[in-house]
Nucleic acid binder design. Structure first.
Lengths: 217, 217
DNA sequence: TGCCGCCTCTGACAAATGTCACCGCCGATC
DNA sequence: GATCGGCGGTGACATTTGTCAGAGGCGGCA
């Protein structure tokens, strides 16, 4: 039976999730059998519903879409994972492929491509933007060590060396050294540029903070 | 005649735009009469189609949704402007109201609220999240001077004092002074925190760069 | 076994950053 | 006419940041 294609949709913004569901719902051969607002929920629903396809956003709270992809691949072997994300970052694409995804779409593309991609995946194809694939290959793998990443993400929200050292239980000198090597590996000229370049490449984890920074006092 | 509600939809991400259109298309009393991918296009289409309601994203390239709102209010008096944005920032809400918008929705909300909000606006109501309104009032108006904003946005992508001075045709000392006062007004401890806090409040222009930073070399 | 990369740390140094006090010029407002 | 805020600038100063050259320890791999 090549009946309805059963799709799970994971996306943290409720309005976008609902809108995408209605978009897919227009297709006669596609059925949205589950929705999730974060990665953990996505895995849980996938285990329960056993969809043909899981369509995952990357930037989600609690657990990002890449980790959810790996979780679903491990627990629901029959389910193909597609990534649908705002940012076409080379590092995201690479990480998605390594996590077992077979498609990588960006939200910039025209809406009609979504259903088409779902059908192509169902037919066994991979769906990846050729330009993005080239960028991912030419950019090479993530050069940052885990610790360098930690320090960069901490630096990203304005923490000083001392703050970062405290947060990561490191000495200040160590933090300086990691920051310095991260700056060099990203070919940046200071930590801000390093953070931005690492983000542009998709070298930093794609998780979303639970809630804004609350600083609105 | 209280016929179909004619809606213009402006949103830069094609897939989201199409999905929202399909969501609104499900409603029997709503018709999407135009779509736009940036603020300039939104104004042009509004002038041509004279919709009842313009539904605008804020973070768009070329011209942001706030500026587009003002343009539409000035040129198409019969058209009500609704803002639909990812970020519920107090400063955005305030700026949107000053630009003549009558509704402010965040994409986090459930999808079903969209059509409901459109109908309420059509009936003459304003639609604003009460919590967000309170935050906007308690946060007070934007304390940053235009020049302080300029310097902060330049600092946001990693430029050094010298870079900023060159870009803005100022002396380095002047840039330091603006940066310092921006840091104090935002109660931050360095420029990165200042940028982040200003962004969180919605005190920086909500435009999107034409394309990423190209640094993927 | 040796080599390599990563982790952690120290100490010293130059350069960039942030602060402060102060200057004059303009335009708006009381 | 005076006052105030914004704009643009200078010079001096303390602090922070970024760099470099080391050091030892760990685990993997040839």
């Amino acid at each position: 039976m090549t009946g309805l294609i059963r799709v799970l949709l994971a996306e943290d913004q409720g309005m976008v999730r609902g809108a995408l569901a209605s978009l897919l719902g227009l297709e006669p051969d596609i059925e949205v059998v589950g929705e999730a607002g974060d990665g953990e929920e996505a895995v849980a629903v996938a285990v329960r519903e056993r969809p043909d396809i899981a369509l995952l956003d990357i930037e989600m709270p609690v657990m990002d879409g890449i980790a959810a992809a790996a979780g679903i691949r491990a627990r629901v072997p029959g389910c193909q994972v597609m990534i649908l994300t705002t940012f076409g970052r080379p590092g995201y694409l690479r990480a998605a492929m390594e996590a077992g995804a077979v498609a990588f779409l960006v939200k910039d593309s025209p809406a009609r491509e979504l259903a088409a991609a779902v059908r192509r995946v169902r037919a066994g194809e991979r769906v990846i933007d050729p330009g993005l694939a080239a960028a991912a290959l030419s950019a090479g793998p993530n050069p940052l060590s885990p610790r360098e990443r930690d320090v960069l993400v901490a630096a990203a929200d304005g923490a000083s060396i001392g703050d970062i050292a405290g947060r990561l239980h490191l000495s200040e000198g160590t933090v300086r050294n990691y920051l310095s090597s991260a700056i060099q590996k990203t070919h940046a000229r200071n930590r801000i540029e390093a953070v931005r370049r690492a983000q542009a490449h998709g070298w930093l984890p794609g998780r979303l903070p639970g809630r804004p920074d609350g600083g609105v006092t």
